[in-house]
């Protein structure tokens, strides 16, 4: 929990200091535990990817098949949406409802743009011959696991982005009703959706490196 705007927060509503968790709320601890287990799910997928690629004799160079500039732009979009998300949390803490709605809206737009780029990429790759169970480049078959691992990892992440957009939309609805700008801990749900959204951004940073760049 950021405390730099403490002057605007009613401290009477904040939980007392816990020797181990400080002022982290139950919701925040639960979200971190969810993030940790979700991170291990991604870790398992990347682990499997590492094993399959490391033991394959004919793994293509991803950069020769996947569109790096477009994906780099999508990565930048997610980073932008992380910035708008922290601004949304700041606005909620400072009880600025209009700003909160504006920044949440911008974050949702960033997520939707990312999903749009991913949909375009999938369509393009499918037409180029990269399928989930069979892959070919210029009609020549390549290791089918290339497509399998690519769609499994990026698809699992894409579902997280979609979940995040839906989650953000629910929070935006509450923000428009003024639920999160009433002082005290009312901003907490915005902070929790922020944690999830930053996690989605963080995972993509790793996926972009391991699946696209290496």
């Amino acid at each position: 929990m950021s405390d730099t705007n403490a002057a605007t927060i009613d401290h009477a509503d904040l939980p007392s200091d816990d020797p181990h968790f400080g002022k982290a709320t139950g919701g925040k601890i639960a979200m971190w535990m969810f993030i940790a287990q979700d991170g291990m799910s991604f870790g398992g997928l990347l682990f499997a990817y590492g094993v399959l690629r490391g033991t394959a004799n004919d793994w293509p160079v991803p950069a020769e098949i996947l569109g790096i500039p477009l994906t780099a732009f999508a990565t930048f979009l997610l980073i932008c949406s992380s910035l708008t998300m922290v601004f949304a949390v700041l606005a909620a803490k400072e009880k600025r409802q209009a700003d909160l709605c504006k920044w949440l809206g911008a974050t949702i737009v960033g997520g939707l743009a990312f999903l749009g780029i991913q949909a375009y990429e999938y369509t393009h790759l499918a037409h180029a011959g990269i399928g989930f169970t069979h892959s070919a480049v210029d009609g020549v078959p390549i290791n089918s696991l290339f497509g399998t691992t690519f769609y499994a990892v990026t698809g699992f992440h894409g579902l997280h982005v979609l979940s995040g957009v839906i989650y953000l939309t629910c929070i935006l609805k509450g923000a428009m009703a003024g639920k999160y700008t009433q002082g005290g801990l009312s901003f907490s749900p915005v902070e929790l959706v922020g944690l999830f959204w930053h996690f989605v951004d963080l995972v993509w940073i790793l996926v972009f490196t391991f699946i696209y760049l290496l």
């Binding site: 181990h20 982290a24 925040k28 535990m33 993030i35 991604f42 870790g43």
Partner: peptide
């Protein structure tokens, strides 16, 4: 800004 237990939870996936 978090205390160490929250950080330890966050660090759990690192072993993967």
């Amino acid at each position: 800004h978090e205390k160490k237990w929250v950080r330890w939870i966050a660090c759990m996936p690192i072993y993967m």
